[in-house]
């Protein structure tokens, strides 16, 4: 029964697609026995189709395809169930499997913290690469007339917690943590409404069903350009954001302290114990993606912060971030 599956069909399809492009890549002939994938690589995505993480993973896949960076294709597979719990337990169940990698977001930390029953220790995963850090801004509809954080705080306090609606992604996820930071800093409360994804949140703001959001730049950029939404401040350190997003003041610059900073990491990890040569292949592969003109162009256009990190440094980063998220989750009452 196992031999019949559509995963395979999809792989055949992908292979067919490649062949059709007249681009059957010959495996490089040099004899130094570097490890290379022998079959298509499962590119597990910790989120459902269509969200920011999914789009980014598919973008990475297409850069790899476009430049024939890998002898075998990457096949994106969404395992978004349980805030990524499904993907995490899948990765945990495949130690040593060299044909699986996973695109992560911050649920890499929050999900194992909120669901200790999973028994997932992210420190055991093999670090591959941190590709970028996504940023957050505070957004309002441009019709509101609110132009500064001060005006915003006044408006929220005047409206009161019952009437000020903040839209975001699921509870315990990034947007709600950033919202909790705002509430703590400014001493107000809001009604937090969770939506399925950042794109939907952005649309709800433009449709005036909610009053403010903490969207990523890529989610609001189109509406900002069209003059429908307005960023008030950015949850980044001074001078980190470049391009048009660089013009948005940071909370730090506005004098609200340097603790008003939050990132969404965009990293790639592999299962535990995959071996040094396998790890090297993937690190090299993602370094090529990272250095590609497409990736760098995407980062600056979409307001992401470049931040290449790999090896032990990446694991250390994960562990530090996990500790930081533990604090945030405790502060917001999500965990004890």
């Amino acid at each position: 029964m196992k031999s019949i599956n559509v995963g395979k069909l999809a792989l055949i399809g992908a292979a067919f697609g490649l062949a059709f492009g007249g681009a059957v890549t010959a495996i490089s002939g040099d004899a130094n026995a570097q490890w290379q994938p022998r079959k298509p690589v499962e590119f597990v995505i910790m989120a459902g189709q269509g969200g920011g993480a999914d789009r980014l993973a598919r973008f990475i896949q297409s850069i790899i395809e476009k430049h024939k960076m890998s002898p075998k294709p990457l096949v994106p597979i969404n395992k978004g169930g349980g805030s990524g719990a499904e993907a995490l337990s899948y990765l945990k169940s495949k130690p040593g499997d060299p044909h699986i990698i996973m695109a992560t977001l911050n649920s890499l930390y929050t999900t194992p913290l909120r669901q200790p029953g999973l028994g997932v220790d992210i420190a055991t995963f093999t670090p591959i690469a941190r590709m970028a850090e996504d940023t957050f801004q505070l957004w309002v509809h441009s019709d509101t007339g609110i132009k500064t954080v001060d005006e915003y705080v006044k408006a929220v306090k005047k409206a009161g917690a019952r009437n000020w609606k903040m839209g975001g992604t699921g509870k315990g996820q990034e947007d709600s943590l950033v919202t909790a930071m705002l509430e703590k800093k400014f001493g107000f409360k809001v009604t937090y409404i969770p939506y399925k994804g950042g794109g939907k949140v952005a649309k709800e703001l433009i449709g005036k069903h909610i009053d403010s959001t903490v969207n990523n730049p890529s989610e609001q950029a189109g509406f900002w350009d069209a003059g429908k939404s307005r960023p008030l401040a950015s949850f980044t350190p001074k001078g980190k954001l470049k391009g048009k997003f660089g013009g948005i003041p940071t909370f730090e610059e506005l004098g609200y302290g340097s603790d008003m900073v939050y990132y969404m990491q965009r990293s790639v990890v592999a299962p535990a114990n995959i071996g040094k040569d396998v790890q090297k292949f993937y690190v090299d592969l993602f370094q090529k993606v990272y250095q590609s003109a497409e990736w760098q162009g995407y980062l600056s256009k979409k307001g992401l912060i470049p931040g290449w990190l790999t090896g032990q440094a990446l694991t250390d980063y994960f562990i530090a971030e996990r500790a930081a998220h533990k604090k945030l989750l405790k502060a917001s009452g999500e965990i004890k």
Binding site: A14, G17, L18, G21, R58, S62, E65, P73
Partner: peptide
């Protein structure tokens, strides 16, 4: 659409 997306770079 997902499978054939890479083809469209041509």
């Amino acid at each position: 659409v997902a499978i054939l997306l890479p083809m469209t770079f041509l």
